Amino acid sequence: MTVNELIELTADFEHLPQKEQIKLMAWFFCVEHSREYFETKEIKEEFDRQNLVAPAGISSLVPQMRKGKPPVFVNSKKGNSIHRTVKKELEEQYLGTTHKKEVSQSLRDLLGDVKGATQKLFLEEAISCFEIKSYRASIILSWLLTMDILYDFVLIPTNLTTFNQAIQSHGKYKKITISKKEDFSDIKESDFIELLRIARFISNDSRKILDEKLGIRNSCAHPNSILILDYKAIGFIQDLVKNIIKNYQ
Rank of each mutant, 00 (worst) to 15 (best):
P17M: 08
D191K: 07
I228G: 12
S104L: 05
A54K: 10
V86E: 11
K213M: 14
W143Y: 15
D113C: 01
C129R: 15
E92G: 07
R217I: 09
I187R: 02
F122M: 12
L196D: 01
E42L: 10
Y151C: 00
I237A: 02
I7Q: 07
C129A: 15
R200M: 14
A56S: 07
L210Y: 14
P71Y: 09
D48Q: 09
Y173W: 09
K100I: 00
L155N: 13
L240H: 01
V241E: 00
Q21D: 07
R136Y: 12
L95V: 08
A54E: 05
Y231D: 03
K101T: 10
V74E: 15
T97P: 00
C129F: 15
I228H: 03
I127N: 08
L227I: 02
D191A: 09
N204H: 15
Y135I: 12
L196C: 08
I226H: 04
T177E: 14
R217T: 09
V103A: 08
H33N: 10
K23H: 10
A221H: 12
T98H: 04
D113R: 13
A54R: 04
G79I: 12
K69M: 05
E194V: 04
E102W: 00
S185T: 04
N4W: 11
F163S: 03
E45L: 08
R217A: 06
R217H: 11
E36F: 02
A199N: 07
K213V: 06
P70I: 05
Q119F: 13
I202T: 03
L150A: 07
S106Y: 07
E212G: 02
K41F: 13
F47H: 03
Q249K: 11
P55K: 04
Q119R: 14
S76C: 01
E8Y: 00
L196T: 10
S104A: 15
A126E: 07
N80I: 06
Y151P: 00
A233E: 02
F201K: 09
K232C: 05
Q18A: 14
L229E: 10
E45G: 04
K232I: 14
I193H: 06
V3L: 07
F73Y: 06
E36G: 02
I198M: 09
A11T: 07
T97G: 02
S128K: 15
F236A: 08
G112D: 02
R136S: 06
F122H: 13
H222T: 14
N51V: 00
H170C: 10
F13L: 01
D148S: 15
K44N: 11
E102C: 01
I140F: 10
G68D: 11
C129T: 06
K174D: 05
N159H: 15
F29C: 07
G79C: 10
N164A: 01
F122S: 11
I156G: 05
F192S: 02
I140R: 06
I58C: 14
L229K: 09
R200K: 13
T10P: 11
R35Q: 10
Q64C: 13
V31S: 09
L240G: 03
I245K: 02
P70G: 03
E42F: 08
M147E: 15
L6I: 13
Y248S: 11
P55D: 12
D186I: 12
N218Y: 06
I226E: 12
